[in-house]
Amino acid sequence: MSNENMIVRSRLVIPINVNKFVQKANKRNADVIVLDLEDSIPYEEKEHARTLIPDAVQTISSLITPIYIRVNSEEDFLYKDIEKSVREGVSGIVVPKVESGHEIEKIDQWITELEKKANLAVGQFKISVLIETAKGFLDVADILKASKRIDTVSIGMEDLASDLGIILNQQTVASLNYFRLKLITVARAYHVIPLGLMGSLANYTDLDSYRKYAREAFELGFRGSSCIHPSQVEILNKSFKYNEEEINQARKIVNVFNNALAQGRASASYDGKMIDYPHYKKYQQIIDEYERVEKYERLKGNEGRC
């Protein structure tokens, strides 16, 4: 599956050392499950947390829902985390605080060695990039072109704001859209899926604001977001998807243009506006994306009933 066809609306991050969360992971309906070895794990527990990967993966194992491992960025932990993560049942890793393409190249090479050692298909294991520093943001283009394994990229906005010395409030939050727009632009240029939210991941109790931020992110060009609480999953699944009104309009416009083509014309009028090939392509893409999501939801539903 190409990156563009992946469905990553909701990526639920779960502390790997909280067994009750791991046990319930498959009931949350997230598009992706991320087992966390990083921020949610105390420093003194990190070595032990790594040993929990095999059992956690076996517990969550699904034919439909990919499992990723969020590894630690410090080299004392990073390569040991990766070594334990490259295994059957794990689709990839989330790498935080990436700052250069060279880092990704080294990680890619290490993964290749591990795939060969484990008799896994070389190149299938993915890397999801998390940008959390000014240096990483400046080098985001070099980072994304450093490996074909990279499937998604996102910004750790709280960490980035801290690194930049920005205090997050109503006055400063709009300025962060600069970083969001650039990330989307670079991601699209290198065929990587941009993930993000217009607000913060932290306040999981304000679901109305969360829903608003998620929908705005979708309209801006993001195609999903990480979340830290099960209550956020369905909001993301619905927000990062075209609604019935949008898909009905797209189908009407495509039909109008197809009728024009059948009459030997490459332009048409819809609702008082001209429709030509760029519009047709845009709305056909909307339909294709919608149908991929619908098919994916049916597959998840069928798996749940098995």
Rank of each mutant, 00 (worst) to 15 (best):
E245M: 10
T185E: 15
L160T: 06
A217C: 08
I167T: 15
T185K: 14
T172G: 03
F257W: 06
I150P: 02
P278L: 06
N237Y: 05
L183P: 03
D271Q: 10
I275K: 00
Y242V: 09
I253A: 02
A260P: 06
L197E: 07
L176Y: 07
D276C: 04
D151M: 09
L261H: 00
M274K: 05
L183K: 01
I155P: 00
T152Y: 06
S154G: 10
T152L: 06
K212H: 14
L168K: 12
I167N: 12
N237E: 01
Q170G: 11
E244N: 09
E245F: 11
V254K: 05
S209V: 06
I247L: 06
F179R: 01
Q249Y: 11
Q232E: 10
I253D: 02
S175G: 15
K273P: 05
S162Y: 13
T205D: 10
D271G: 04
S147T: 07
S154Y: 08
Q170K: 12
P194C: 08
Y277D: 04
S231L: 13
A266Y: 07
Y204G: 05
D163I: 06
A187M: 07
L168G: 02
D139W: 03
Y242L: 09
G221A: 08
D139R: 08
T152E: 08
T205H: 13
I166A: 03
L160Q: 01
Y190H: 15
Y204E: 06
Q263K: 11
R211Q: 14
Q171K: 15
Y204P: 09
K238I: 08
S162K: 11
V173S: 09
K273D: 06
L164C: 11
S147E: 05
S269K: 07
Y204R: 07
N177S: 12
Y204A: 13
L261N: 04
S200N: 12
K182G: 02
G196V: 11
D159H: 01
H191N: 12
F218H: 04
G199Q: 10
R223N: 08
T172K: 02
P194S: 04
D139C: 10
N169W: 07
A214I: 08
S269T: 09
R188P: 01
K212V: 15
P194A: 05
L261V: 13
F257Y: 13
F222L: 04
G272N: 02
V233G: 01
E244A: 11
S239D: 00
P278E: 06
S267P: 02
V173H: 08
V233C: 02
I235N: 00
N255P: 02
E219N: 11
K212R: 14
K182N: 12
L144F: 12
N248H: 09
Q171W: 14
S231M: 12
D206V: 14
F257R: 01
A189T: 15
S209P: 04
S239M: 03
S231F: 10
Y190I: 10
I143S: 03
V153G: 00
I143N: 01
R180S: 09
M274A: 06
F218P: 01
V233W: 01
G272H: 03
G224F: 07
Y270L: 04
I155H: 00
R251Q: 11
S175F: 15
S154D: 02
I143V: 15
E244F: 09
N237F: 10
I167H: 12
I155R: 00
Q171P: 02
V186A: 04
L168C: 05
G199E: 08
A262M: 11
